[in-house]
């Protein structure tokens, strides 16, 4: 059988979600942002909530996410996405509101906002991309940077006596009573992508049921910031990030 006989409309089993726009993503080759955008788009399409979803974009590489997902977006000041999402979700309780934040946005400048939004149990979903580095500004140390990890501002590796300890913010958030679902996932293999999709579906369903805050951390790569090729960055993430940031559900109520 020739390849031309296989490539026909009726044999199509997988293609780009309609919620994703045709714009070429500005992300570096192999960036996990693209994978997460795609999964969010697929979940929104499968749940049929494209006209009921409002997202809040952060400051960081994903600040331009509104170019790629064909839903309503609101841009927030740096770290303040949960505060904006609080307002949107209280004014429009029937909408599915989610924030999409990186580790520099959520775990650093926006720690107060995320802590209090989760503690109040706002009815939002938070998608937290943790790549342990400030990607957009050129690879500086983030609160989540691993001990000994080399970045632009810690060229000899992060020292805990000088720079403090890496912040496990997801564990902190799991202790707050306002959250209903706290999980840590990844997107480096097809199996991880399937699990992440299940987690995001569950989080959006929780929002639909008015259950409180759902928090999904996605352990990600930043191959430009880490100065590695994409495939090697994934291997480095499995070897170094997963022992410190173990995957799995922390809370599911």
């Amino acid at each position: 059988m020739d390849v031309k006989d296989i490539i026909k409309e009726e044999n199509l089993v997988y293609s780009k979600s309609k919620v994703l726009t045709d714009n070429i993503m500005h992300y570096c080759p192999g960036c996990t942002h693209g994978v997460v955008h795609k999964i969010i788009a697929e979940v929104i399409e499968e749940m049929g909530i494209q006209d009921k979803t409002i997202a809040v974009s952060p400051v960081g590489c994903s600040v331009l996410a509104y170019n790629y997902l064909d839903i309503d977006w609101q841009e927030a000041a740096h770290g303040r996405a949960p505060a904006i999402a609080t307002a949107i979700s209280r004014l429009h309780p029937e909408k599915y509101v989610f924030t999409y934040q990186g580790d520099g946005d959520l775990a650093s400048i926006g720690t107060a906002e995320i802590m209090h939004a989760c503690n109040r149990g706002e009815n939002i979903t938070v998608i937290f991309i943790n790549n342990a580095i400030y990607g957009m500004t050129g690879g500086q140390m983030a609160p989540t940077t691993l001990e000994g990890m080399k970045t632009a501002t810690t060229p000899y590796g992060r020292r805990v006596d000088l720079n403090g300890y890496p912040l496990k913010i997801t564990e902190l958030i799991a202790q707050l009573p306002g959250t209903c679902y706290v999980t840590r996932q990844s997107g480096h293999t097809p199996a991880a992508v399937r699990k992440l999709k299940k987690a995001i579906t569950k989080a959006f369903e929780n929002t639909g049921k008015n259950k409180g805050t759902s928090f999904i951390e996605v352990v990600s790569t930043c191959n430009s910031g880490w100065k590695m090729p994409p495939v090697k960055a994934n291997e480095w993430m499995v070897e170094n990030m997963f022992p410190f940031y173990p995957l799995g559900d922390m809370k599911d109520e």
Binding site: I6, N11, L12, V13, Y14, K16, K38, P190
Partner: peptide, 22 residues
């Protein structure tokens, strides 16, 4: 084999997968 694993991990969502049963 048309398993769509490649399309699932593609960050830029540019792979379409086709599959036929023989």
């Amino acid at each position: 084999i048309g398993c769509a694993n490649c399309a699932m991990v593609c960050p830029d969502s540019i792979i379409s997968v086709y599959k036929v049963k023989l």
